[in-house]
Design a protein around this nucleic acid. Sequence first.
DNA 1: GGGGATCGTCGAAGCGCTTCGATTCCCGAC
DNA 2: GTCGGGAATCGAAGCGCTTCGACGATCCCC
Lengths: 399, 399
Amino acid sequence: MDIPYLPGLPFMGKTGRGLLRVESKRFTCLRPSLRPRRRPFPPPTDNAAEPGSAHSGTALEDSMVTLAEVARQAGVSPSTVSYVLSRKRSISDDTRRKVEAAIEALGYHPHAGARALASNRSNILALMVPLRSDMYVPVIMEIAMAVTTEAREYGQDVLLLTKDEGTRGVRRIAGSGLADAMIVMDVELDDDRIPVLRETDTPAVLIGLPADPAGLACVDLDFEATGAACADHLADLGHRDVALIGEGEGVYQRHTGFAALTLRGFQRRAAERGLRAMHRACEGTYESTAGILSRILEERPSTTAFVVQNESAIPPLLSLLRLSGRAVPEDTSVVAICPDQVALQSSPRLTSVSIPAEEMGRRAVRMVMAQLEGDRGESVTLLPPILTVRESSAPPSAS
Amino acid sequence: MDIPYLPGLPFMGKTGRGLLRVESKRFTCLRPSLRPRRRPFPPPTDNAAEPGSAHSGTALEDSMVTLAEVARQAGVSPSTVSYVLSRKRSISDDTRRKVEAAIEALGYHPHAGARALASNRSNILALMVPLRSDMYVPVIMEIAMAVTTEAREYGQDVLLLTKDEGTRGVRRIAGSGLADAMIVMDVELDDDRIPVLRETDTPAVLIGLPADPAGLACVDLDFEATGAACADHLADLGHRDVALIGEGEGVYQRHTGFAALTLRGFQRRAAERGLRAMHRACEGTYESTAGILSRILEERPSTTAFVVQNESAIPPLLSLLRLSGRAVPEDTSVVAICPDQVALQSSPRLTSVSIPAEEMGRRAVRMVMAQLEGDRGESVTLLPPILTVRESSAPPSAS
DNA sequence: GGGGATCGTCGAAGCGCTTCGATTCCCGAC
DNA sequence: GTCGGGAATCGAAGCGCTTCGACGATCCCC
């Protein structure tokens, strides 16, 4: 059943008759001269409930149904139809019903461009994602999906931009009115998109925490607290020598804040709790993980616990620990910073701090919508880490 | 440096002066009555090169620069500016230069909505992706990124839709003119979006192969040939007993074609080559992989090679083989059907048929653009599988 | 029972762009 | 010379929608 446009929540609407099919219609845009121009104002037929009028027969001249046609069909003026749709003025129940019936019967959808032009709102949110990322791809995907889903709740669509369009992309969007607002992922500490966002005064939310968030809205996991939570958990269990296997060098060098913050939180809390903490960057391949693991164990054989912040290093790490005869969690504890999905899919299931990807995506949309409704848009939201104890962490063996 | 809109390739353009900033501007859309309406037609100032005219001072009234303003600044008519931009009529070099200078100076970007309204083209491609998929997420992401990148080459933007919007989403897009065309991922054998695509006559490309592709454009990896290629490779090496570890039951039941096709190609070629072939569906968790592996080896201990079509089953499988003392490739060969990235990240690096995600994304865009330029849009493109021999396959041990 | 509110509706203007003639100018061919 | 035709430009008419102001018709309160 098809769902024509009906006012109210984005997904409302019952069934309609469906647009009639025009054989060999296809877009003829490249030959614009062929496109028939419509008469200035077609003479109104008298009233509603007149199925045999403009839309009888077997084919539509043009599959685009306009608001004016709906108005004619319903026997009201175009502006009335518009007000039924926007609910910006009161409309009698009677009229509303007639208009809604006409909308259904014709399978009307408002023309997005016309709407954007007249109302100065496109109902589109731009989402800027990293093209290729050091970050775990599923997290990005989950955020993107959450943003898209939540945006639809607000009647917004999502435009996908890649980070490599950079400031140019931001300006293009801000300048063309293609989107009403932006959600920016993979934010670097000193991201060059930020000044452009400020300058063009685009409503925006960053997913990630830049060095200077003044005047901006940001959401992120509180990575410093995350590092601290991992240290706490291991200290509580009684470990004394612990190591953090982090992201690749690139991530630290590109000045993406989260890796450095995690490390800082981890090291500080470790110090406070009397743990000896090591740290190694890891590219995530089997080889690099193997190298790092053996170096750590060589340098400090008393290490009994690992915190892993690089999702792709998890399978190699578990595999290597098994091979080297270290049982998890009996001999060695592992705490991961990763999406729940990854933690649950491993064997043993991992004690982990989850990356609240969906929550961040949803929040970003809500914050950006608040800005579109007048909110100042200056806020930093750090989501508290949640450490879930599973099967990969335990007190160190007595030996 | 900011890049105003300049005609030509999407990314062209040099530097501009930047939009002036208006303090506390923000969108005031919810109070539309406050939005200042512009005078019907502002009196033209006389000529170009008049920097002190409308845009002097310290702030713009309204940050939106219009084509009319560019025209005034350049001392030509609005239609001339439009033709400079669209290259649809010849323009003298002199005029072109003046107009381009004005565009740069003002930081002009055409208003997307106005453009869409007047030209009946939004320059947006809708991409429908699965919300949650049994498929390997990075593949989806890679396709999405390839589509976005390639689309920009054609001056198009990409609108992200989720599969769960289903037929409603397709109708909404087709009806509202929000996008010019659709690219549909995660196509099921009997996908209900297909009839709607046909009915609304929307230019579209499917990534995936439905049961009846008549009248549609599709791209996909040739999975039947992929299964066959795996069987061939193992037969060539001299294996006699082989097993295919496939996707989860759900994938087969949802009637997604690729899993069934792979299996068919594998079994047929195996039979032709005199191999004994088994098949098991696998959910991809460690536990399910372990169960399947032990059942296979129990049922047919002479099995010396595995084909894996489930990316998440790869790490567990390799881990389990190691634990059970079977060396890869000395004792057991493994051939994967997965993105190169996964094959290269495993240890040993896997012989694999790669999933040409980027290629599919790019092709989909090209095909859809061809349709927008008049192509009939009926074609099935099956990309030939490429099997790359790496370190995980070898002749079976002599024993 | 008359005067303001309020409600429901309509007409018209305009959003910023594209595109269709029409117009002007210039050139070469006759 | 004259005329056809191309090149370069302009003016104006829309594209489909939103929104403002206006205008009857009720309604309510003194």
